[in-house]
């Protein structure tokens, strides 16, 4: 696992195309990930945004090869550093997990094993991939803990998870994720369960870590305000598909998809004081036997008969045509023309 091609930020380190994950249910097939494509480059941060049930976490799990039966990745390709990962056997996948692709989970109170000491949980992560002694491994653990801002790592290594606060536990989880300097880290809403000040600190640290180490970061969240300050690229997911993607500036300032606008308007601070919070009417559709057509049409003010047909992910027209916005794509028959209208 040591082949490291020349570091270039231009070629994406992770390239996902047409990813499809299906769950066989009793009365049909659920498609939480339905043809998702994106790519991330080294040192870049990509935000994957969507409501609960939009398939963003499932996309993360699919890339990690952590989909449990009855779920299955049925289509698409996942290129990690140019190498196809999908369809690898269990052992090769295991060797990649934690080593080349790491993942951080939402609830730091639950991700660390409550009955094992931190040093056990960190050392085993190294020893699962490399043949190193306990002492050498512990040195690296100390370094990783210091890197994520944990004071007195020596003492902390001998502690149990319950002796840490939520923010500290998430730092430990991040330290575990960066232990082996992976190419990609998938962070599944890692700051959602934390309070705002801790969230800010962790965001800043993650950003710094990725820039410094050249790790690509996929940040899964429902919170566009987090993405605004953190990410380079954004993919907005809805009902298992990517409905809009582009650079943060493009997506947030020249929003093209009505759903993205709905998400933006749902952020409380964007609402005028004293008024009812704006919300997207309705709920995410059931992913079981989803009918063809735009999945958002039931909740969309712009929906017409045309929306009964599947929209394609196409470049947004009418924007300044510099290189960055050429990558701004939307999957909508009636893309918004004017950006955010408040």
């Amino acid at each position: 696992m040591s082949q490291q091609p020349a570091l270039s930020t231009a070629t994406p380190v992770l390239q996902v195309s047409g990813l499809e994950t299906h769950f066989a249910a009793r009365n049909g097939i659920v498609k939480p990930v339905n043809g998702v494509s994106f790519s991330v480059s080294r040192g870049k941060i990509m935000g994957l945004v969507g409501e609960s049930g939009s398939g963003k976490s499932m996309t993360g799990y699919s890339i990690m090869g952590l989909i449990d039966a009855p779920g299955k990745v049925v289509g698409g390709s996942i290129l990690l550093d140019g190498r196809e990962v999908r369809g690898l056997d269990a052992e090769s996948l295991r060797a990649l997990r934690g080593n080349r692709i790491a993942m951080i989970f939402q609830d730091p109170m639950m991700t660390l094993n409550p009955v094992l000491r931190i040093d056990t949980q960190m050392v085993e992560a190294i020893q699962a991939h490399e043949d190193v002694g306990r002492h050498a491994a512990l040195d690296r653990c100390r370094a990783a803990l210091a890197q994520v801002g944990i004071a007195s790592p020596d003492q902390r290594l001998k502690s149990y998870p319950h002796q840490f606060s939520g923010g500290m536990r998430q730092r430990v989880a991040i330290a575990i994720a960066i232990l082996l300097k992976p190419d990609v880290i998938i962070a599944d809403e890692p700051t959602t369960a934390l309070d705002v000040t801790i969230q800010g600190q962790i965001l800043a640290e993650m950003q710094k870590l990725c820039r410094e180490s050249g790790t690509a970061l996929i940040w899964i969240t429902h919170d566009l305000s987090v993405i605004a300050g953190l990410a380079d690229q954004v993919c907005v997911m809805y009902a298992g598909r990517i409905v809009e993607r582009g650079s943060v500036d493009d997506v947030l300032d020249s929003t093209a998809h009505p759903y993205t606008l709905g998400l933006l308007n749902s952020v409380p601070s964007r609402n005028p004081r004293g008024q009812r919070l704006r919300q997207i009417p309705g709920m995410t559709p059931s992913l079981l036997n989803l009918a063809p057509g735009c999945p958002f049409r039931e909740r969309c003010a712009h929906a017409t008969r045309e929306c009964l047909e599947d929209p394609l992910l196409e470049p947004v027209l009418g924007h300044p045509t510099d290189a960055a916005s050429a990558a701004h794509q939307v999957s909508c028959h009636h893309p918004l023309q004017t950006g955010i209208s408040t």
Binding site: A95, E124, H129
Partner: peptide
């Protein structure tokens, strides 16, 4: 079903270690 098992898998631990240490001790 616990997250710590999923996290252990995400770390790339072998099944034997996940079951023999993480699950069994709990």
């Amino acid at each position: 079903l616990m997250d710590y098992v999923k996290f252990a898998r995400a770390k790339g631990l072998s099944d034997a270690r996940i079951i023999g240490v993480h699950v069994l001790k709990n």
